[in-house]
């Protein structure tokens, strides 16, 4: 019953693993990239809403803005000191982004946008998905290059990042210098707005299409309902992204750095206890708390 359509024997690697690559491309967009994006935006936006979440009184941290920055600092510190296997997670994330980008571009090149003739909303979303992907890749590259690798493009002197000074470096990066706004900083700010907007859109819309690709939403009604969910998630993330940029666009990088230094000088107990730790304290085992082979009370010890 086999016909002329049988696969040719001299298939390329891509052809042989086409389904796997396609679905991995879809999957990586959600896990880990999408999940990371949520975490990243939640964390960054905490600089705005952190004042309301901060439970303890920190020395020298009184203003609402400072409280927010302090909360953000604690969040970043917690992530960078408390999450196990962070390097492994980062490697997975980088590999996923690279994979998603390379194949994303390759797949996107097979399409030809025709919104000029068929200006349906879904068609615009299709085109925007590809455009946002391209822009997203460029943005991520810039974002990482400047903050992680210390590239100095648009920001003289560079803004190499460290966990302790996440907030101030970010503010300096967005504003163009450690002393406030420069012309380059305006461009960077705009680039951040654009990049974050595009990435959030890309994720929300990708989540919507993934449900069709995997065959989760079948009927038009189900696709519409899931669309509302994705749009809601996207809107929330969008607000978080914009708020994060706004916060670091308005705070003074120098003062932020001073705040961070103050927080850094304080002891590690400023790092908010993890849930496990609080639980452990509640049951009065707060001396040497060891969970899963890790000493949760000490700083970075588990990594060393």
């Amino acid at each position: 019953m086999s016909h002329s359509v049988a696969a040719a024997p001299d298939q390329s690697f891509l052809d042989k693993n086409y389904f796997l690559i396609r679905r991995l491309h879809s999957l990586t967009g959600i896990v880990p990239i999408g999940v990371f994006l949520i975490a990243h935006l939640v964390t960054n936006s905490s600089a705005a809403w952190g004042a309301f979440a901060l439970r303890e009184q920190l020395p020298g941290v009184n203003a609402t803005a400072d409280k927010g920055l302090a909360y953000f600092w604690k969040e970043v510190m917690w992530i960078n000191t408390q999450i196990p296997h962070l390097l492994l997670i980062e490697i997975t994330l980088w590999a996923s982004i690279a994979f998603h980008s390379v194949f994303g571009v390759y797949f996107a090149m097979s399409g030809k946008s025709n919104t000029n003739r068929y200006s349906y909303q879904s068609n615009w979303r299709y085109s925007l998905q590809r455009i946002s992907g391209y822009i997203g890749i460029l943005f991520i590259f810039y974002h990482v290059a400047t903050l992680r690798w210390g590239w100095t493009f648009l920001v003289p002197g560079g803004t190499k990042w460290s966990a302790e000074f996440a907030g101030s470096t970010l503010a300096a990066a967005i504003q163009g210098s450690e002393n406030g706004y420069t012309f380059g900083g305006v461009l960077v700010t705009l680039l951040y707005f654009l990049g974050v907007t595009m990435l959030v859109y890309h994720f929300a819309n990708g989540l919507w299409t993934a449900a069709i690709t995997w065959g989760i939403t079948i009927s038009a009604a189900a696709q519409r309902r899931w669309g509302y969910v994705c749009a809601g998630l996207g809107a929330a993330l969008m607000v978080m992204g914009w708020v994060s940029i706004l916060v670091f666009a308005v705070v003074n990088p120098g003062l932020t750095r001073e705040l961070e230094e103050g927080l850094q000088k304080g002891h590690s107990s400023l790092v908010e206890p993890s849930g496990n730790e609080r639980l452990a304290r509640a049951v009065r085992h707060d001396d040497e708390l060891v969970v899963g082979g890790m000493n949760l009370n000490s700083n970075r010890t588990s990594k060393e």
Partner: peptide
């Protein structure tokens, strides 16, 4: 290759 995965969900 060229199957359902190539759909871009433009839904035109």
């Amino acid at each position: 290759t060229g199957g359902v995965n190539d759909c871009g969900n433009a839904q035109n």
